[in-house]
Amino acid sequence: MAMTVEQLNRQRVVHLLDAFARGDIETALASCTDDVYFLTHAPIDVLPHLVPRQGKQELRELWQTVWSRYSEVRYKTPHIVAEGEAVATYMHAFFKKRSNDRIVQFDMAVFYTFRGGLVAEMREIIDSYDLVQQVLEREIGPLIAGAD
């Protein structure tokens, strides 16, 4: 029986995530359109590499930056919802820092839009306060209180 477009797109997202998690950036990029758009709703003044990215080259540079800082990437994806040309994933992400082998663990939601069987847009929402604390390896609360 032929797969539905939802099943195909869901499989394509899993394929992309698997490729990225094993560091195969070119295979992950091959799942994307040439003008792929990437947007993370996260504090870009603190995490400047998470600025919006347009096109494969800009996305390649972002993913290379991530892999230059982390030696291991794992995902657990408890929720995937697909409808038509859109797929949403809720993921637990685990990134191991190259600098000290600590694991940065955070939840993220990614909304994918497909065009012609390729990912044309990725929009992420992250629990960014927690992510920043883990990346900084310090609590933000005392910094806020100290500024008052």
Partner: peptide, 27 residues
Amino acid sequence: RVLIDTFDLVEQALGRAIHLPKMTSVG
């Protein structure tokens, strides 16, 4: 399960930006 850009939420609740160093090499 709900995810929010929580850093932005905190800044809005405080009414000001949280100034932290840019994590150009570690983030």
